[in-house]
Design a protein around this nucleic acid. Structure first.
Lengths: 216, 216
DNA sequence: CCTACCGATCGGTAGG
DNA sequence: CCTACCGATCGGTAGG
């Protein structure tokens, strides 16, 4: 359609060397990840673009080659976190047919993802109100989507009789609160691996923290 | 010591009408509560003093009669939340001698307090980094204090054998994550009372969400 | 308790 | 990718 279309040069080296665009994506991702880490630690408004730029070894205006606004960065960071949740659900579904075991797998996998990215997922704690409607609305939609999916998983296990009957909403609020809180205290170089935390939390959620043989 | 001391007029009506100072305290508290609510909902930096003033029916400069800085307001709001936690612990200790029951009482009471203040306690989610060191340091100290106290309660129940042996730190992180998250989704005019949520969450924490009689 | 108003921070842009 | 620099927001103050 465009007049310049006919002038496009053939790809050099038959695209064997995608260098330029690949570099761009790599840099952009590094920017979003670094920002996510900072936003999660200190909060969106307590983190200036200049600080992010400094952490990446460039100046603030350079960031604008990769991103349009600060809001866009937060939006991308949150999107990555929601994608991880969706991936954990996929893994849980393809891992087993049993509703209760699915829930367990979801918890373990999601926690492993959350703890494997240098704390980038703490951005989930940043209020959506830090974003203008154009970004906040899709994020809220994804929150509802994740909630709906998890409630469905809980309901399925209740229907199967392996979960105590009750309000799925409350159950999801319970364990997602505990899980999303992890990003706020987890230290990648601490004594516990993501897997260990995942297994432990999954056990706590399903079986509680009580001793198996309460003394009378 | 002051020269005007000798000129002080006797208290009118023998202090039966403390009006002035009481009014001041009432207004100050209304200010902090309103701000806490707004900070918890939209975040500290997304809430301007002008918005808070408007919600109270005054102009921004009027707030400075009751408070020195915006930071001080956030500090007070967080302090109130920590005081509630301490009160819940006191109630738990004076309510029973049994370590496990104490934990249960703490959870129920704390959740009841958190849900009984129009969402003021969501300020706990605001990062301490929104405060300058002079305020952030005491807040961090109180976080550590609360953590230590709760770990002690958990350890006691483990020693008594009513809680499964394990890492008290992880146990506390687990249930406090779930509990503090409540302030972020609780609606005072929703279908659930704070008491109901408290009882349910306490049960989830202690016994898990699993059905009591899993089918084989 | 209000009407102005100042000062600093910081997101974003110009221009190279 | 950098050196300037603009513009808006907003916490806080003056003065009444």
């Amino acid at each position: 359609m465009s007049r310049s279309a006919g002038l496009k040069k053939p790809a050099r080296w038959a695209d064997a060397v995608p260098a330029r665009e690949a570099q761009f994506e790599i840099k952009r991702r590094a920017l979003v990840r670094e920002a996510a880490r900072a936003f999660g630690r200190r909060g969106f408004h307590n983190t200036s673009l200049e600080e992010i730029a400094e952490a990446l070894g460039v100046t603030k205006p350079a960031l604008y080659r990769y991103v349009r606004t600060k809001h866009e960065i937060l939006f991308e960071a949150k999107t990555i976190a929601f994608d991880a949740g969706a991936r954990a659900r996929d893994m849980a579904f393809s891992g087993t047919e049993d509703p209760l075991e699915r829930l367990r797998l979801y918890i373990v996998h999601y926690i492993e993802l959350v703890t494997s990215e240098l704390g980038s997922y703490a951005v989930l704690a940043e209020p959506v109100t830090s974003l203008p409607p154009e970004y906040a609305d899709p994020i809220r939609a994804r929150m509802r989507e994740a909630d709906r999916a998890l409630r469905g998983m809980v309901q399925a296990a209740m229907d199967a009789g392996t979960l105590a009957a009750g309000d799925p909403k409350l159950v999801v609020a319970f364990f997602m609160g505990a899980i999303n809180h992890i990003a706020r205290w987890y230290m990648p170089d601490g004594p516990l691996t993501g897997r260990e935390i995942g297994e432990t939390f999954a056990h706590f959620v399903l079986n509680g923290i009580r001793a198996p043989l309460p003394r009378g």
